[in-house]
């Protein structure tokens, strides 16, 4: 589904603090699987994830998404691709405070120009699915950690993406909530979504949901084997 060829990402190029965050990465992600990017802090997981998720362009190398070359797409089009293909869950939920849970879920679909009423209906269905219907009209700052996490998942699903990307999703959750998160992931995988998770939490990479672990260190892939 996604193929990276010799991808390299440099920060602060040609300056004293030049930093190569990703170097020589070749990686192929298949549909319907669950992949974990595993590695210590600072190894380049987030950087790689943002390139995979069309949030950043690599300094060099090529990216193919469903056989379409998207390497040098300008931001205007890359965003469109991202909005249609990826749903993203962040480490710190990253919900927008001051507005309701429902509005947070609807936000990613605003630029699509969907009718407000039908969008709202879809968002309510998603909230229902995640057992959050009672919280739809609460401000997000009143939600518990688990509820906020599920709102973040609902938001990632609103545009019906093929791929779910999560960056350290369990870093701010206790064990029970982390397991709950993985159960939701299992459900999504069953529905046919492709999962891409960056994490160094054993609850994530030891979970039976995961099909494949890609290990990174210092910006390079050290092993990209499938789980037996």
């Amino acid at each position: 589904m996604i193929r990276l060829q010799n991808v390299r990402k440099v920060f602060n190029a040609d300056k004293a603090n030049e930093f190569v965050a990703i170097e020589g990465v070749n990686l192929s992600i298949d549909s319907h699987g669950a992949t974990v990017l595993k590695g210590p802090s600072g190894s380049g997981k987030t950087t790689l994830l943002s390139i995979l998720g069309c949030m950043a362009r690599p300094t060099s190398g090529r990216i193919m998404l469903k056989e379409r070359e998207i390497t040098s797409l300008p931001e205007r089009f890359l965003t469109e691709v991202r909005r249609e293909t990826f749903g993203i869950v962040f480490q710190q939920f990253n919900l927008i405070k001051g507005i309701t849970a429902l509005e947070n879920v609807m936000l990613p679909a605003y630029p699509n120009g969907e009718k407000h009423a039908s969008l709202k209906k879809r968002a309510m269905e998603l909230l229902d699915l995640l057992n959050l219907i009672g919280k739809a009209f609460s401000k997000v700052e009143w939600l518990s950690g688990g509820e906020a996490q599920r709102i973040a998942i609902a938001r990632a699903l609103i545009n019906n993406p093929a791929i779910i990307i999560a960056d350290e999703p369990t870093a701010h959750l206790d064990t029970r909530l982390s397991r709950e998160f993985m159960e939701i992931m299992r459900q999504l995988k069953k529905e046919g979504k492709t999962l891409l998770i960056a994490s160094h939490d054993p609850i994530v990479y030891d979970s039976t949901v995961i099909d494949r672990i890609v290990e990174i260190r210092d910006g390079k892939i050290v092993s990209s084997g499938d789980i037996p």
């Binding site: 440099v10 190029a13 362009r57 690599p58 300094t59 190398g61 390497t71 040098s72």
Partner: peptide
């Protein structure tokens, strides 16, 4: 240079 991913191009 649209093909470049350099910071200047971005």
């Amino acid at each position: 240079d649209i093909r470049s991913g350099s910071e200047r191009q971005l």
